[in-house]
Amino acid sequence: MGEAVSRPYRRTMPATWWLTNRAYFLFMVRELTSVFIAIYLVLLLVLISKVAAGREAYEAYLTFLGTPAVLAFHVLALAAALYHSITWFNLAPKGLVVRVRERRVPDAIIAGSNYLAWIAVSALLWWVVL
């Protein structure tokens, strides 16, 4: 026996495991929303640097943002960001247990206040910028 040391058996998982079931697939979609958000943040940082660079650079970048491919990316990124928000707020009551006078605050109230904050912050930003 050349191989005296036996290793524990490890079942290998195919990289496509998340395609086998709807819940796994939705989990992977949720995880991948972060990639869209990260790419968006890079594009936003470039936008700010173009604002600093001057009017011509800024206007050229706005034209770039208006090209069909970049616009399509932002539409997808918006869908991804909405999915992140909804899954995040729905999970919040599970991570945050609030008790008032020994009683646990119902999940619906915690999730609901998150949604209200979301709407208020979105409306405020929309109003400030536009």
């Binding site: 706005l62 616009l71 979105s122 930003l125 929309w126």
Partner: peptide
């Protein structure tokens, strides 16, 4: 991200 990413994307990626 949950609070402001959607409105930010709508503002700079679509409206602008």
């Amino acid at each position: 991200a949950a609070l402001v990413a959607p409105v930010q994307i709508a503002l700079t990626g679509i409206a602008a």
